[in-house]
Design a protein around this nucleic acid. Structure first.
Lengths: 137, 137
DNA sequence: TTACTAATTTGTAACGGTTACAAATTAATA
DNA sequence: TATTAATTTGTAACCGTTACAAATTAGTAA
């Protein structure tokens, strides 16, 4: 059981209710949500919640390294809890994003053609397991 | 010398002046431009050009496989001429996008954890060669 | 507690990339 | 040349996001 209040403090972020709840959500639901999805999900629990707070908080968390921002979709940013390095698979049909645990040793080097690599994002796209079954039936 | 008129016909796209010029630009300048950049660049040559035409044309080309749409930046889509598979490096400082010719054999397989992979995008981020030199000086 | 200050949250308006849509223009055909 | 279809254009709207100021909350000192 993670103490999110402590986790925020460790990252130099004063733990308000909104911040704790947003962090908790990102940690518990691995759905790579957009800012709006987080907002919708927490509206019931925090009726006064503002969308701006969600955007600001997600931005802060990302800057502090607690979350990672993904650019898998063309138009909207998605967030996930920063854990082990992994790659993403997006289904063209259902739109779901899957985490692929496989890592690539060949990307471990931190220098390529003279450039210093700080991040790498691998995004696969295609038809997911579920949609393949549906199409085959 | 590529005959862009013929190339369009081969992809089932009637070759209008606008379409030819846009394709020509994407082929000649490997700058991974946004729709707006293409628009700005062609405004002199085609004074009546509309931004909507650029957007529509880029979309059509992408659907037909002539171009590839990149989601390296968070907010805007960038396009490039569809050639050999390669990966992209985006510099945090100058924002430029570099093509890295290195390919990864480990991503050649078309099936991963049950999902059918149709596309893969590898985006590296960090400090580019040029900016490293500037920072070191 | 109370008064005061700083931090946080909120709501509205605005911004920027993109798209919808109808009118205007151009090309194609008879 | 007249008619029809395709393409382009311009405007307005959409949507994700951000700027900003007001309102609220939390923290501190008397």
């Amino acid at each position: 059981m993670i103490n999110f209040k402590e986790l925020l403090k460790e990252h130099g972020i004063p733990p308000s209710l909104q911040r704790i709840k947003i962090l908790e959500y990102l940690h518990n639901f691995k759905t790579h949500p957009t800012a709006d999805m987080v907002y919708q999900a927490l509206m019931d629990e925090i009726p006064t919640l503002s969308k701006t707070t969600v955007y600001n908080t997600l931005k802060t968390f990302t800057e502090k390294g607690i979350l990672v921002a993904l650019s898998i979709f063309e138009n909207e940013v998605r967030y996930e809890y920063n854990t082990e390095p992994h790659i993403h698979f997006k289904c063209f049909k259902c739109g779901r994003i899957y985490d692929i645990s496989k890592t690539f040793e060949c990307l471990k080097n931190e220098e390529i053609e003279g450039h210093k690599v700080l991040e790498h994002h691998i995004n696969l796209k295609g038809i997911c397991k579920n949609c393949l079954v549906k199409a085959g039936a």
